Amino acid sequence: SKIRITWGDKTWEWDGDDEEVWKRILEWARNLGDEELWRHVKEWVDK
């Protein structure tokens, strides 16, 4: 399956939905430097 994140007018996609993928997404969000996006992603990961 895919994980799709839409933020503003951008959309990103990742293949898979296991823990490793979420770790990569969390790292990606942090590297993007958008605090609010990172917080949202972290909330999803922690669920």
Score class of each variant (00 low, 15 high):
19 E>K: 14
3 I>Y: 04
31 N>G: 14
33 G>Y: 05
32 L>E: 11
41 V>A: 02
34 D>W: 08
24 R>L: 14
7 W>R: 03
10 K>I: 10
38 W>K: 11
35 E>Q: 08
8 G>Y: 08
12 W>A: 05
25 I>E: 00
39 R>V: 13
17 D>E: 10
13 E>N: 03
4 R>P: 02
45 V>D: 04
21 V>S: 06
42 K>N: 15
34 D>K: 02
39 R>C: 04
40 H>L: 13
44 W>D: 01
25 I>M: 04
36 E>A: 07
42 K>I: 15
27 E>F: 05
2 K>I: 10
26 L>R: 05
37 L>F: 14
38 W>A: 10
28 W>S: 01
31 N>Q: 10
5 I>P: 00
4 R>W: 12
1 S>W: 07
39 R>K: 13
4 R>D: 05
31 N>K: 11
15 D>Q: 10
46 D>K: 05
2 K>P: 12
37 L>S: 01
36 E>L: 07
4 R>G: 05
42 K>G: 07
35 E>N: 04
9 D>H: 06
25 I>N: 00
10 K>C: 08
18 D>L: 06
8 G>P: 00
2 K>M: 12
10 K>N: 12
30 R>S: 14
19 E>W: 07
42 K>H: 08
28 W>I: 02
25 I>K: 00
46 D>A: 04
31 N>C: 06
19 E>Y: 10
26 L>F: 05
44 W>H: 04
11 T>M: 08
5 I>Q: 00
44 W>A: 06
2 K>R: 09
37 L>H: 01
34 D>H: 08
13 E>T: 09
47 K>D: 07
16 G>A: 15
32 L>W: 13
5 I>S: 00
16 G>Q: 10
7 W>F: 08
34 D>T: 03
40 H>S: 15
41 V>K: 00
17 D>T: 09
27 E>N: 09
31 N>L: 11
6 T>Y: 09
41 V>Y: 02
46 D>E: 14
13 E>P: 00
13 E>D: 05
35 E>C: 04
11 T>E: 06
45 V>R: 04
26 L>H: 04
39 R>P: 03
34 D>I: 11
41 V>M: 04
29 A>H: 02
44 W>Y: 08
22 W>Y: 15
6 T>I: 12
21 V>F: 03
11 T>Y: 12
34 D>S: 07
10 K>T: 10
26 L>S: 06
7 W>M: 05
18 D>N: 14
16 G>V: 08
8 G>W: 07
37 L>D: 01
38 W>S: 11
17 D>R: 09
31 N>H: 09
17 D>H: 10
3 I>F: 05
6 T>A: 04
30 R>K: 14
26 L>N: 02
40 H>F: 15
29 A>D: 00
29 A>N: 00
37 L>K: 01
2 K>F: 11
38 W>N: 09
13 E>G: 02
17 D>Q: 09
1 S>E: 12
32 L>Q: 15
45 V>T: 06
41 V>D: 00
43 E>N: 06
16 G>M: 10
41 V>W: 02
3 I>Q: 01
31 N>Y: 09
40 H>D: 13
39 R>L: 15
11 T>G: 02
6 T>F: 07
12 W>F: 11
42 K>E: 14
42 K>C: 12
12 W>N: 04
16 G>N: 11
42 K>T: 15
39 R>E: 15
